[in-house]
């Protein structure tokens, strides 16, 4: 490389100008012919390269490429199998979870009806107690509820306002009114109970039962069996403060 002396720039430009404008010499024709071949070959090669990625490749390159593809294929197949296995496992566990959720939901529904926190529908009886002299107090009322429970009543409400649950209590107040869970129950009393309607009917009407007691007190009991009864009164949901689940 001749880097020693700085070349003359103006002379070089003059040569370029001469080359571009001057009459072509014989040498330039030859150069042009070779350039033509070069341009042709270059374009041909570029097109060939763009046309087909593999045509210009050597055998060992192709072999390497094929091996790479093979191993990638193997890897992906394995990966697919693993993912399918994972999918199967997840599906299984999600099915199990769904079953557990369904089971829990059913249990929760049952418990909600027992706890009185959910409305309930079903066959049952409507018991109307009329006592013009206001002689039926907490005693016969509690008795009536106990009889119904004994006969398998699953949901009980009184006058459509009070849901009778496990914690319910019946009291008299000073004015001769009956209170359930502290709430005054107006006369006439209407007790609606969901359960086997025939059994519930019998529980009220048997000799010496509620009906006889109320009649002895000067009142009257009417029992009506109903195909579909709706218990809509709800009990207050309360957390156990002292009782903990024993393990």
């Amino acid at each position: 490389m001749a880097e020693g002396k700085a070349p003359d720039t103006s002379k070089a430009w003059a040569r370029v100008k001469h080359a571009l404008t001057g009459r072509p010499s014989r040498g330039q024709w030859v150069v042009a012919a070779l350039f033509l071949v070069l341009g042709f070959a270059a374009v041909t090669q570029v097109r060939a390269t763009n046309d087909d990625d593999f045509a210009g490749m050597r055998r060992d390159e192709l072999v390497t490429l094929l091996e790479t593809l093979d191993s990638a294929d193997e890897r992906l197949t394995q990966q697919r199998a693993e993912l399918a296995e994972t999918q199967r496992r997840l599906q299984q566990s999600s099915e199990r979870n769904q079953a557990a959720i369904d089971e829990t939901r059913r249990a929760a529904d049952t418990l909600a009806i027992l706890a009185g926190t959910a409305p309930a529908v079903g066959q049952g009886v409507v018991i109307t107690i009329e006592d013009p002299d206001e002689t039926v107090l907490a005693g016969p009322m509690l008795n009536a509820i106990e009889e119904l429970r004994d006969a398998g009543a699953e949901a009980i409400q009184v006058n459509g306002v009070v849901r009778v649950v496990a914690q319910s209590y019946v009291t008299d107040d000073a004015n001769g009114a009956v209170r359930i869970d502290g709430r005054e129950i107006k006369r006439p009393f209407v007790i609606e109970a969901i359960g086997d309607s025939h059994t519930l009917d019998q529980a009220v009407m048997f000799r010496g039962g509620l009906a006889d007691q109320v009649e002895a007190l000067g009142g009257e009991v009417d029992v009506e069996q109903v195909k579909s009864l709706e218990v809509t009164a709800l009990a207050e949901e309360r957390e156990a403060e002292y009782a903990q689940p024993a393990r």
């Binding site: 404008t21 072509p24 042009a32 033509l36 071949v37 341009g39 270059a42």
Partner: peptide, 22 residues
């Protein structure tokens, strides 16, 4: 000048005939 022309003509021919490499 004529050399540049030769190059251009070569490229044009290559594009025109779309030759395949033997």
């Amino acid at each position: 000048m004529i050399a540049v022309l030769g190059l251009v003509v070569g490229v044009a021919l290559g594009l025109l005939f779309e030759p395949t490499v033997p």
